[in-house]
Design a protein around this nucleic acid. Structure first.
Lengths: 233, 233
DNA sequence: GGACTTCTGAACGTACAGGTTCAGATCCAT
DNA sequence: ATGGATCTGAACCTGTACGTTCAGAAGTCC
């Protein structure tokens, strides 16, 4: 479609003998798979998107299936790294747990609402039947590295007496659920962008409920102004 | 899978000419789409699954796309009816809100964990790009009929002074999130069956957190024994 | 510059799925 | 039983996508 030689095209074609086409192919593959789904995506489109000839794709990655697996793995790695980075912020909670949790919640929601992140989950759901091993690839082998990391942070907070004692894994589960659950519906499964203000609102609401249930002194937080959000579709 | 097979079998041998094959076709279509995904499912397989010739499929439902839409709509209707029925139980809460909520939570989780229900969500996620109108079909035009119904019930409970006042839609959102979030991970997106005991555990945990945050007198519930579950993968 | 590797573009073989056609069988109503 | 509707099974057409092949161009290393 964009096949005619524009200047942008010339630039993309410049490094021709380079070996780093692989990354471009994987990126393009994820883009196309995300747009079309595994079944409907065709390798030619991926090659075009990557600015590469079709045989080059088969040269670097043997199969369409393998191409899909690799692309998903790469996307998952990036996505997971972002979320883990967001959680790291809980390593040094100041005086205000509430603000810290809201901050982390907001960052997690930002990761979660990224286009690539939505696409990753959509493709995971979609192709789990055909690629069962994909679940471990994406979640990071276990209950999920994100949940585990969050559980670790919450456990430390419990130990420090800032949160109620209990199963940290369960608390992490519920914390994430309180954030992502509402987003799923509001964004219409990722098809509608959510303004950052609404992400804040959802994060605040989630953390409010979480703290009411998990704070050692829930009443302490009830004084804080919590109304007048009014961000709802 | 066996369900449709038997019904298809029964129809195949008894009345061959007359009968609404339509329902059999829609059932079979959903089964096959659930197993293969839209792109990889082929109409021949659906016809076979329904015990019907291929032209008959095209006779009743013009397109593969239309076939998909109709099959999804039918499955969604059934699924939504089940969930709404579960929520109806909140119309007459006795003395014990906690037990009532746990009961509803458990029933909702049972609906949610049904094979067809998982398949419906998987297909929705998967094909939302190609069939955007599907979201309204499945959720029931709006924030989701299930969420709305639940919000109605919670609003009444708030008005009766049994739950804290606040946005009922938000409470419903969070209630559902606290239930379904943990299930998503535990069942590995529906690929692993969850024993009913674990559903109970998750429902109890979700309701416990929900009530700590939303009950008018949270302390009243803290006396109840809540430990010794130990159901975790 | 020359040898070696990689990439390109286009063609090819193959397989398979969507959708149609048609003659014959089956069913329902009268 | 007869007529009309529906279903069947198989063949058929067509488009498309996977994966391969190959000659030649372009980059890389000596």
């Amino acid at each position: 479609m964009t096949g005619t030689a524009t200047s942008a095209e010339a630039e993309r074609r410049a490094p021709r003998g380079r070996i780093d086409k692989r990354q471009a192919i994987l990126d393009a593959a994820f883009t196309v798979f995300a747009r079309e789904g595994y079944g409907q995506a065709c390798v030619k489109d991926i090659a075009d998107e990557a600015g590469v000839a079709k045989p080059t794709v088969y040269n670097h990655l043997s199969d369409k299936a393998n191409l899909f697996r690799q692309a998903m793995a790469a996307a998952a790695e990036r996505s997971m790294a972002d979320e883990l980075a967001a959680i790291e912020r809980l390593r040094d909670v100041g005086d205000d747990i509430r603000t810290a949790l809201e901050d982390v919640g907001h960052r997690l929601l930002q990761c979660y609402c990224d286009d690539r992140s939505w696409a990753l989950r959509r493709l995971l759901h979609a192709e789990l039947g055909r690629f069962p091993e994909l679940l471990d690839t994406v979640r990071g082998h276990g209950t999920g590295r994100v949940n585990d990391a969050l559980a670790d942070r919450l456990a430390r907070l419990s130990l420090a007496g800032r949160l109620r004692a209990g199963d940290p894994a369960e608390a992490a589960e519920q914390f994430v659920a309180l954030l992502t659950g509402p987003i799923e519906a509001r964004s219409r499964l990722g098809t509608v962008p959510i303004p950052d203000a609404e992400l804040h609102t959802v994060a605040r609401a989630g953390v409010r409920t979480f703290l009411r249930a998990y704070a050692t002194d829930p009443q302490a937080y009830e004084t804080t102004a919590q109304a007048a959000d009014g961000t709802r579709g």
